[in-house]
Design a binder for these strands. Structure first.
Lengths: 253, 253
DNA sequence: GCTGCCGGTTGATCTGGATCAAATATAAGT
DNA sequence: ACTTATATTTGATCCAGATCAACCGGCAGC
């Protein structure tokens, strides 16, 4: 038993109640007693490595997954054989909620760097949410939040130009890292330019050129995967757009 | 009391258990007894008319809404003053789930034609789902489904060209109408070309041109708002794409 | 019926960002 | 260090679809 403790890394074994992410994660707003009950059903697996899958498109749905450390991307195959990156997931973020409906995963989840992941068997969770109203509410909130984020992306893909998209992406990363106690202006990208472009509906070349341009304009510094945002407010101004977006007709219907 | 019955339209007063939509809607899969309990909390308002709002962006979140008859569009303001149409909602579809998280509506919902709407106070619903596990499951499924639909849209906006987008839109409408017992190949559009374009991330002119082209190619017949799909399988082939989508690099990451 | 307006169609032009092409930088082996 | 595979950058060109412009048809109000 002592042996087990030695082997397993501290960051993996830590219970929800001791986890620094609990305020961002499922336990948010639960009384300690209920956190304990949640803790009982969470499985903490050994760390996964770059390229490992949490699940693949088509897999039977059994569990939700929460990133504890590291990062994960989710992506869906497009019919022609390409793929659409659906999201990049940071610690505290929940993955797999889109699979509840069909009881099967419609997308795949791949680990971008060495990562610790919590697994939450959904049937167990469902039992629990029946008896813990605040946990049920939290689940509704998390599902709803995911919908909200998706609609933000729809707006981004439907109405924003390349520049605005990349600025929005950088700011989103910045803000999410900040919430996790990391620097909002100095971080490493765990995903490739390719993946960024795919996610934003842009060609790699466009992403690369924009990085260069943003750097020339003094908005940021780019060195390989290392990003420093030098002017957050200028980036924010870019996202809102100069009032033209993709310069599309701004119709009121 | 008899008087009341005379005034209120049959389609409005019909209880969930007698509603033809129950198999698509919240009551799906519930035992009759539980449907009864759900029924007790559903408010059935008088019909709304074209242009009426169910709710507006910024409104406090109180209820979910279900289209009983007619159709509704939801849309979010983009920062610059334009708007992004987020969806068109047909009978049996639930609106407002994105608002649970922030306890406020992030988008507006406007009625496209005279419509009957069921209102479900969310706090009451939450109480109910605590005691009816199958209803809770249904809620999870519905929220999850919404996420799945949004990711479908992300793929559409991120990877598909104009032709594929419009074909996908028409087929989606067709299939949803079919599920509701209506013709999958002959229907009326309750939204303008403008709204379709906005929804699909295309200019009005592009939508118009594509309608013309599809008609010339014998895929459909278009007369004003009246649509007849003549070759569903050809449209399906279009959606899948000729293997190129927006002709973007189909990278495996 | 007439008039004005709005939604829709059609044509001509323009352009952001994709595609094509090639060089360069990193990483991974061997 | 040397070869090979992969990721990123940079430059040149192309094109789908946006934008601009003009016109048309249906319908609401008078």
């Amino acid at each position: 038993m002592n042996q087990r403790k030695v082997i397993s890394l501290e960051t993996i074994r830590v219970a929800c109640k001791n986890c620094t992410l609990s305020s961002l994660c499922l336990p948010m707003g639960l009384v300690p007693e209920d956190v304990e009950r949640l803790d009982d059903i969470v499985k903490r697996a050994r760390p996964l490595h770059r390229g490992d899958f949490l699940f693949r498109e088509g897999d039977r749905f059994r569990s939700l997954y929460v990133v504890k450390t590291g990062s994960v991307k989710t992506f869906a195959p497009s019919p022609e054989g390409g793929e659409q990156v659906l999201g990049f997931h940071l610690p505290g973020e929940i993955i797999g909620m889109d699979a509840i409906d069909k009881d099967a995963h419609a997308c795949s989840a791949k680990v971008l760097e060495t990562s610790a992941i919590c697994e939450i068997p959904f049937s167990r969770l469902e039992e629990l949410t029946c008896t813990i109203p605040s946990l049920q509410h939290q689940m509704y909130r998390l599902l709803s939040k995911e919908i909200g984020q998706d609609t933000d992306m729809l707006l981004l893909l439907g109405k924003k130009n390349a520049e605005e998209r990349l600025a929005a992406f950088l700011l989103s990363l910045s803000q999410r890292l900040h919430k996790r106690g990391l620097s909002p202006s100095d971080f490493y990208l765990s995903m490739s330019r390719h993946e960024i472009g795919n996610y934003l509906g842009l060609a790699v070349e466009t992403v690369s050129r924009l990085f260069t341009r943003f750097q020339e304009d003094g908005l940021m510094r780019v060195d390989r995967k290392h990003i420093q945002l030098l002017d957050l407010s200028a980036l924010e101004a870019l996202v809102v757009g100069s009032g033209q977006g993709r310069r599309q007709q701004q119709q009121q219907t």
